[in-house]
Nucleic acid binder design. Structure first.
Lengths: 351, 351
DNA sequence: AAATGAATTGTCAACGCTGTCAATCGGTGC
DNA sequence: GCACCGATTGACAGCGTTGACAATTCATTT
């Protein structure tokens, strides 16, 4: 009494595909992994069988049997605006290589951080890890990953390490370019709102600003450079300090859009006409940049592309005899300056 | 010539733990999986060995051998603001049960959506899937998951299905409550900006608004109810239509904060004093709500808690003989009305 | 003290795939 | 025609864990 061959929905295994194609399981495996040394005709036959049976290799089995896990980790701390864009880019790149992304929130200040990282990489056997700031700057995380021999890509790290790749944008050049736009419009006294101390972006954006000022022979008044922390609330204080200066600036460069929005609020409260009496620019092209009036001129971050690039670095990484390939891959993605209503010519008669 | 017992960093296997504890591998497995039928003393001994060797069970092996995969999927389409918060909540809940979250962006309009879903669930053998809107409303996704017997949790679905659990917030009650605040402050003519047609939130928020109006015997002027789509740009148009009405309202209820921010912009352009001449409220407590002046009164969504709840539903789900447990779990999380500067008493002499 | 049965523990064979290495195939050169 | 060599392909043994079921232990009962 044998069952008729019901077209059961049981997941096809590699054995079944092999039978269908008239080859061994190993050969099917070779095709799946795109190994060389399979005759074209054989490969085609296997592909057809895979297609016909709608076969999907089992990740767990592949991970157990082979050296790979097909898993990449994305470790982050603050789920900011940009995380979802970034991860979407990373997943897209992963898909192209049949990898999967495991997102893992971590707390940078956690005393057990090392243990948490260690647990993750050993349980999952990650093939690589993408570290978003501020995790990209923690030595203990770097060390744990390095010790386990897991390639890590650091996103916008404060301190570049020579032994690990990173994805960066040239914030400095973009900040300089945006500052140029202000100077070209006649602004001479320009305030600057710094981001959180210790972030690479904080440093680079200020340097770009200073580059432009110096290139035009303009002085930076220290009183007009105030420390913020990338957050709106702190930005309010920061903007107040700048705008209550006896000699008020005609423009403000905020290190990100949230603080730029804060400057807009403060200006409004002080009844400063925008943009006639004060130009304000931000950075990031966050959603808020277009949700206020006037809309902020800013710099668009190619966040999704950065996600792609990060995943790509891990995927491209072929283990060498020792360490990473030389030279260290370190893609720089282009930023785009976006001019909107918040920028205008300096008021006539300004210093 | 035998090597000295270097404290090698080789991953400890279950066998090694078993040896250390003086039991069989199977017993260690029992302890790991928290099965009953292990003597307390034995369990303690195994735990000690696990601790000592810093053993981490291999996910792939567990997935291959057992019925479980320890993987939950989070499928989303638009990476909005709230995704990262939501997923962080979901991951936190997963960690408590040693599960992992795989995030997978999908395109609702993709003709191959079914195939994409099918590939994912078979490759990964997901134990469950969380569907964010608008994916939570696509019949083909539901069907594919149901056919594969994979529990799915639907977040804020438009149409509740009786055969699947969902996580909802009571938008209607919160909208009513927020509207009450306006009415209590003397507002009688209130405009309403609708969200995107077909979303549950759009419907529920309007119904809550209508509930409050009717409860107070107030009429809703159809001209003051305009269709938006949750986006800022469209919100501008929408607000313009409402505010250019011959009999201008004294308050506007926007279905989300982005549109609320748009109303603020338009009011400013029309030189309407905020909040003296016009109160504006939003919904979601998005970042923008506190980045504009005046700050928007709104309703805070417990996004992270929703993520937790969604993961919890999957984890709690114990396969029954047939279908899901009765009654269908459907947690409703409490929303919080937040009053900020954008709400004020209706101008004296208003209708 | 032997029998009983529930609680506890162990044995062993998968799970679906890949790594290793051996076997086979086809074409060359002499 | 035969030894030889590179290109293909296959056989087989795990990878680290769990499921099914057998074995053992131990407190009770007769």
């Amino acid at each position: 009494m044998r069952r008729p061959p019901v077209p059961t929905r049981e997941a096809a295994t590699i054995e079944i595909v092999a039978e269908q194609a008239g080859v061994s399981a190993k050969t099917v495996s070779r095709v799946i992994n795109n190994e060389r040394g399979v005759r074209t005709e054989t490969r085609a036959r296997v592909m057809a069988a895979i297609e016909k049976l709608d076969y999907q290799p089992n990740l767990a089995a592949r991970g157990l049997a082979g050296a790979r896990s097909f898993l990449i980790g994305l470790f982050y701390d603050n789920p900011g605006d940009y995380l979802s864009e970034f991860q979407t880019g990373a997943v897209q790149r992963c898909r192209e290589s049949n990898l999967h992304l495991m997102v893992e929130p971590l707390v940078a200040a956690d005393p057990d951080l090392t243990r948490a990282v260690s647990t993750l990489i050993r349980q999952l056997r990650l093939e690589g890890v993408i570290l978003l700031p501020p995790l990209s700057d923690l030595p203990e995380v770097r060390a744990t990953l390095a010790e386990a021999g897991i390639p890590a890509v650091h996103i916008a790290p404060m301190h570049r390490q020579d032994d690990s790749p990173s994805v960066d944008t040239d914030d400095r050049a973009a900040a300089r370019q945006l500052t140029d736009e202000l100077i070209e419009r006649g602004h001479r006294r320009i305030g600057f709102m710094l981001g959180r101390a210790g972030h690479r972006a904080t440093e680079q954006r200020y340097l770009g600003f200073a580059d432009a000022m110096h290139a035009h022979g303009l002085a930076i008044d220290p009183k007009l450079v105030q420390t913020g922390n990338f957050e709106f609330a702190e930005g309010l204080e920061c903007a107040r300090r700048i705008l209550s200066s006896p000699e008020r600036p005609t423009a403000i460069f905020a290190s990100n859009d949230d603080m730029g929005a804060a400057a807009v609020c403060v200006a409004r409260q002080m009844e400063i006409a925008l943009p006639q009496q004060l130009s304000i620019v931000g950075f990031d092209d966050a959603p808020v940049a277009t949700m206020i009036w006037p809309q902020l001129s800013t710099v668009r971050q190619p966040v999704r592309s950065m996600g792609r690039a990060a995943a790509d670095l891990i995927i491209q990484h072929k283990p060498h005899r020792r360490g990473w390939p030389q030279p260290m891959p370190r893609p720089h993605l282009d930023l785009e300056v976006i001019l909107r209503g918040s920028i205008a010519a300096a008021p006539v008669g300004a210093a």
